[in-house]
Design a protein around this nucleic acid. Structure first.
Lengths: 93, 93
DNA sequence: CGAAATGGTTTATAAAATAAACCAAATGTA
DNA sequence: TACATTTGGTTTATTTTATAAACCATTTCG
């Protein structure tokens, strides 16, 4: 049986990737709302995806407030597609 | 976003369920070979699925050797289907 | 007989996920 | 103006999970 990329096989990271696959870019606050995660958990998981090169994370300012913008990278897109393919064999979809 | 049943969202348990969904029944040795897991890990995960009522585990004898036979239950089948549905929304399949 | 294989279980360890505590800047409020 | 609160996070601690290592009883092989 195919291996399921452990970096993607995590509810929150998968949710993050799932959102980013459909959206060009998304900021921290949006991801937090959509995934209903705590800020701490989100921060940690974004770091992991970023370290793996699956997403880009730009920390900037929006007016006077900090704003973190995330987007999926090419590598992330590819990893996600592969993960989906592997899962298909489990779910027989 | 939908919750992903954590009992099923585990590589090995998902593999076990995936096999059992297509096979009427399967014994310990068969599951071990198919999933390429260690006996210890398999034993633990079978217990969890069994405790959740997702599979039945019958410990008997085949000639002189022990033989553990597993099969998915109705509850297991339903949980699996739900899990698949939830995943679809993540993967947009 | 003693050594290895079979079919497991139990217990310990490593790795994850999650939550709690914290921080700096901005804003609201008495 | 000062003090509490909110915003947007990060860091660290705790809990949960997954995995592996050690073990056990029985059986079979040399």
């Amino acid at each position: 049986m195919k291996e399921l990329n452990p970096l993607l096989h995590s509810q929150l990271r998968l949710a993050i990737m799932s959102i980013l696959m459909n959206v060009e870019e998304a900021d921290f606050v949006y991801l937090k709302e959509k995934t209903e995660s705590t800020a701490g958990n989100l921060s940690v998981q974004l770091d992991k995806l970023s370290s793996a090169g699956y997403i880009s994370v730009e920390k900037g300012m929006s007016g006077k407030r900090p704003r973190t913008i995330c987007a999926v990278t090419k590598a992330g897109r590819e990893a996600f597609e592969e993960y989906v393919e592997a899962l298909r064999t489990y779910l027989n979809l």
